[in-house]
């Protein structure tokens, strides 16, 4: 138990230590991967938020990118009006407003769609979460004011005190700090009373109801927290890229987030971060060798599933046992 615990914790610190320093060192030594690293960190936050409901809660949301997109547009739209006028109510470049707006909108969308989606189970839940994200995707496509399918360029990044998001080091550090906070929050949540109920309901919902828990309410709460966290990721991403576009919500993006969580190790704190790093590095490295990089990538994905080798974070557990995702309690 203890060795396993330490190994996993050591792994967490090593991964985060490298993620926080390597991009900066590379930046100062002349090769600029900083914006790629910032994008990676934002994706890690999104994957971490998905991990809360997927890895710990067992909810296979196939529309998680929608919260990312909402967060991104919650920065893009006020920034647009701040520059070009109109919509006085939200027209501002105040970064606190942007981030707060992103979190609140994403949480609200999660509350409404979650209340409907969580009434369903299994395949229906996968499909309905997918449908809600597609709905938002087509909605954004039809918004000509904000660029429609061309997307919306952010001419003025969020304004925050003491730091400037135009500075790529500041941008990276802000995102990385947000990732650390989110990871710590998830760590606290999953070990709290709430977290144990959530994990119990993943494993055996009937039992949790029989000892007196309203599992729906706990799941919905987790869903809202997760959505809000992913909204934050989107807001940071929008600032980093200074560009938002509907494809952020494309269902393949949601698929990629699931991929990061499961490949890295759902239900572990550091898993989604490892998954995110592997994903971005693979994308970057493979796409250097061949424009057909999706081919080896897809084959790897299929093999990882067929061989039960998902969950990189679990490889480092002391007993070496790799838990296949297919296992678990099917009552």
């Amino acid at each position: 138990m203890m060795v396993q615990f330490l190994k996993n914790r050591a792994l967490t610190f090593i991964v985060l230590g490298l993620l926080g320093t390597v991009p900066l060192l590379m930046f100062w030594s002349g090769s600029d991967y900083l914006s790629l690293a910032t994008k990676l960190v934002c994706l890690c936050i999104a994957a971490t938020s998905l991990n809360l409901i997927l890895g710990y809660g067992g909810m296979v949301s196939f529309g998680h990118a929608v919260f990312f997109g909402i967060g991104a547009y919650a920065v893009g739209i006020p920034a647009y009006h701040s520059v070009y006028g109109g919509m006085d109510l939200i027209a501002t470049s105040n970064g606190f407003f942007h981030i707060g707006f992103a979190i609140v909108l994403a949480a609200l969308f999660a509350l409404i769609t979650g209340a409907i989606s969580l009434r369903t189970k299994g395949i229906h839940f996968i499909m309905i979460t997918l449908a809600f994200s597609q709905m938002m995707f087509y909605f954004l496509l039809s918004l000509d004011t904000y660029g429609g399918d061309d997307g919306l360029t952010i001419d003025e990044r969020s304004q925050l005190p003491f730091i400037s998001l135009d500075n790529s080091v500041h941008m990276f550090l802000l995102s990385f700090g947000a990732l650390l906070i989110c990871l710590y929050m998830v760590h606290r949540i999953v070990n709290s009373r709430f977290g144990l109920v959530l994990q119990g309901a993943k494993d055996n919902e009937e039992r949790m109801a029989a000892i007196g828990y309203n599992t729906f309410a706990y799941r919905l709460t987790a869903y809202v927290i997760s959505g809000a966290m992913c909204g934050l990721a989107g807001a940071l991403f929008a600032n980093s890229e200074s560009f938002v576009f509907p494809e952020l919500i494309d269902w393949t993006r949601s698929g990629e987030l699931i991929f990061m969580v499961i490949l890295g190790g759902g239900g572990t704190i550091i898993g989604p971060v490892i998954g995110g790093i592997v994903f971005i590095v693979l994308e970057d490295v493979l796409s250097r060798f061949t424009i057909y990089w999706h081919l080896p990538f897809g084959i790897m994905l299929i093999l990882a599933v067929l061989l039960g080798r998902t969950g990189i974070a679990n490889w480092f557990k002391s007993d070496g046992a790799i838990k296949k995702p297919a296992e678990g309690n099917h009552e």
Partner: peptide
Amino acid sequence: AQDGHSFRFWKPA
């Protein structure tokens, strides 16, 4: 389950 609601998110249970 008998000790009030479990919407307590911080303290390690």
